[in-house]
Write a protein that binds this DNA or RNA. Structure first.
Lengths: 222, 222
DNA sequence: GATCGTCTCCCCCGTGCGGGGGAGGGCCGC
DNA sequence: GCGGCCCTCCCCCGCACGGGGGAGACGATC
């Protein structure tokens, strides 16, 4: 069963680009398009996509309001992937607060776009601040956006007590074995918690998780 | 050829403890002891130890002054490992600025003490802020000390331009392959730089290096 | 009673990572 | 000229890491 995606962007060119990128994947299917947030709700009801790729800036109803509207009025709502050009942070942040599940730059490489859609579709995995930072680094500058995204991610990624404890120890540089020793549990257990942390933060490895911890203020230098 | 160590601490108990721990190792030999910094220089000249384990607080000549004196007056000076109870950060920081090569908590476990001595003896590897943080975490509290040590480590660990660049990208969560792609070099080259960074920071893995980068202010959140 | 989330531990398995070597070329300073 | 540092790339190798499963025990909630 492929991942179904609804594209919502006022620029036809962007929609076409996203469609081209996503349709190239055998496991992803673009089931519809909309030019404005105002058209989203009926489309979501009818098409029931797994993921809505939603632009932030749209003429009638912007991505934030549209996200809120979808989550408020549709039961079993789709995952919402916020797509932005990265210009205005507050919009992004607001969209995430409104309940969006992920965050993507239009400038991202095709492989990353695909990856983001799959990630969002797959699970409760919410955001991937480290990836955002990567993009920011790759395309230069843009300090601060990653931070907001990271903070939002940490706010929304409700780690369990144990996971939070593990993350704190990871952020002190401890290995899985050392964490296990410290918490008096097996290494397999630690690995399990680490996996949980990585999934919820959308981090690829422990380094990205630690970065997210610092960026979000979960741990602070000094 | 074993690593030779000179112990300098005003507390006989501490000296005895260090001696017991270190002498248990076949490759480490305690060649002398001193009760105060004032006695260090002649002993160093005579015994020519590889490492001096130096307490910070001592009645006549403290570890900072003693470190300075040794480095100033002895040619091919020994490595200096600062031993402290962790109570006063400025002393530690000052000692490191004075030219000490490493940093050790008295509360450290035997295996870690041994490891520290070997590390210091082996090479130009300077400090290991992440390890310090581990100790701080393991024995609870003590926020801030790690930061000072980390900052000192970064100041003294003169990374090359390329290494600094690599560290920045590591701190954005990029893998070796991604860093290679970004810098347009081979992955082997990146691994080489990463190894350099780890050695100079005394980090065990990239996660600890990134932690050191944050703790030292080399990279800042947000 | 049934369900869900959390914490715990287990398996297999691929691979990215890091250590330890070495080697060549370029640049700079002695 | 020669040594030293830096950057580049190469080899082999062991292992911690992380993915992808599963499973049992406990408590809370319904």
């Amino acid at each position: 069963m492929p991942v179904t995606v609804l594209l919502v962007d006022d620029e036809p060119l962007v929609r076409a680009g996203l469609r081209a990128v996503l349709e190239a994947q055998p496991d992803i299917e673009v089931v519809g398009e909309a030019a404005d947030g105002a058209a989203v709700i009926p489309l979501v009801r009818r098409l029931r996509p797994d993921v809505v790729a939603m632009d932030v800036r749209m003429p009638l109803l912007d991505g934030i309001e549209a996200t809120r509207a979808v989550l408020r009025t549709v039961d079993r709502p789709p995952k919402i992937l916020v797509v932005t050009t990265f210009e205005n942070d507050e919009y992004v942040y607001e969209a995430l607060r409104a309940g969006a599940d992920g965050f993507l730059l239009k400038r991202a490489r095709p492989a990353e776009i695909v990856h983001a859609v799959r990630l969002i579709a797959e699970g409760e995995s919410l955001l991937f601040p480290a990836s955002v930072r990567q993009l920011a680094a790759r395309y230069g500058e843009g300090e601060g956006e990653g931070n907001l995204a990271a903070r939002a991610a940490m706010e929304r990624a409700r780690l369990t007590d144990r996971e939070a404890e593990v993350l704190r120890l990871m952020a002190r540089g401890l290995s899985n074995a050392e964490i296990a020793e410290r918490l008096v549990v097996g290494t397999e257990t630690v690995k399990s918690h680490v996996s949980g942390v990585l999934a919820k933060l959308g981090a690829r490895d422990r380094t990205q998780a630690v970065i997210a911890a610092y960026e979000s203020g979960f741990v602070a230098p000094g």
